[in-house]
């Protein structure tokens, strides 16, 4: 299928006129080849390599440069980044802000990063915060939350959420929730569930109240993932199991229902998969080993077909009209 065959099909059906078809054909004939994304990728890779290389160079030559000079340089860079972001930002709005200046996003991210680096450097070299680690984590967290809302930046928001979680002693990054958290401690599980639930609520409220609606995704994904994984761990290792089961099932139900309104299919998947695991686990634990072995094959065969049926027809089940 070529452009000309599509054009003749379209003119044949009377959707476009012959003149329009000619115009489109002309446009295709002498359209220049765009290397926009290739150039941008080279640029970003260059920035990444350059900053990494410079960082290592500074580290290797720290004796000749001196700590004060480096701290001064990082401070200047951080201030410059925030100043640039502030100067080029648009006024606050509850909606998503569409800034035509795309560079601002990256500069803010760079500023946030260098701020973290600066703080870490000060603590490591001069022990500024002493043993008040909470304060050391809280300062960037508050700053990032402010930046996220003021400059409308989802990257800063997720950095702030990460900071908030680490203030409570948790790791929230979706892929390392299980590997990086020590969930043998029951207190930490409750903490994780509580934080996750709060984040989910915040996400829900921001969508309901129309305050930075597009932030809801980040809140829901990070919070929901943390809370659901924590309930799974709680369900398998701690009593009272009923509480964990109810919390987990409730959250899954919330996510599946939410998919109806927001059409966010990742939440549908999250709700389905976590819900499946929770229910399956509960059934098999209560049945005992012998019955589980006998039933296993039939159970998994029929339930997975059932889930597939649900996923294939979820629009019908949830009442979504296309």
């Amino acid at each position: 299928m070529t452009t000309s065959s599509i054009l003749s099909a379209l003119t044949g059906k009377g959707i476009i006129s012959q003149e329009q078809a000619d115009a489109i054909a002309d446009f295709h004939a002498d359209r220049p080849f765009s290397v926009h994304w290739e150039l941008r990728s080279i640029l970003y890779m260059g920035i990444l390599l350059f900053s990494t290389g410079t960082g290592i160079l500074i580290y290797e030559n720290i004796d000749t440069i001196g700590h004060q000079a480096i701290i001064a340089a990082i401070t200047c860079l951080t201030i410059a980044c925030f100043y640039y972001t502030y100067k080029n930002s648009l006024p606050y709005s509850n909606e998503a802000v569409k800034n035509p200046n795309k560079l601002v996003d990256y500069v803010l991210l760079l500023g946030c990063t260098t701020f973290l680096g600066l703080e870490g450097y000060l603590q490591f070299q001069y022990n500024v915060f002493g043993s008040r680690y909470g304060l050391a984590v809280m300062i960037p967290t508050i700053l990032f939350f402010l930046c996220a809302y003021r400059f409308d930046h989802r990257g800063a928001l997720s950095m702030a959420i990460t900071g908030l979680a680490s203030w409570l002693g948790l790791t929230i990054a979706p892929l390392s929730v299980l590997s990086a958290n020590d969930f043998t401690d029951a207190k930490l599980i409750y903490m994780a569930i509580a934080l996750g639930a709060v984040l989910v609520c915040v996400g829900w409220i921001s969508e309901e109240q129309n305050v930075k609606k597009h932030f809801a995704f980040t809140y829901l994904l990070m919070g929901g993932n943390l809370a659901l994984l924590a309930t799974q761990v709680g369900l398998s290792s701690h009593a009272p199991k009923v509480v964990f089961f109810l919390i987990g099932a409730g959250l899954c139900y919330f996510f599946i229902l939410r998919a109806r309104r927001a059409q966010s299919l990742i939440f549908l998947l999250m709700g389905t998969v976590y819900g499946y695991v929770i229910i399956t686990y509960t059934i098999f634990v209560n049945l005992g080993a012998d019955a589980a072995l006998g039933l296993g094959i039939f159970y998994f065969l029929f339930t997975s077909v059932g889930v597939i049926y649900f996923l294939l027809n979820f629009k019908k089940f949830l009442g979504i009209k296309k």
Partner: peptide, 20 residues
Amino acid sequence: AILIAQKLGQTPAESGLEFG
């Protein structure tokens, strides 16, 4: 964003995946 974020140690993964 994730690539840059990975470099930070703190990983703000999935900063803005938006579907639907």
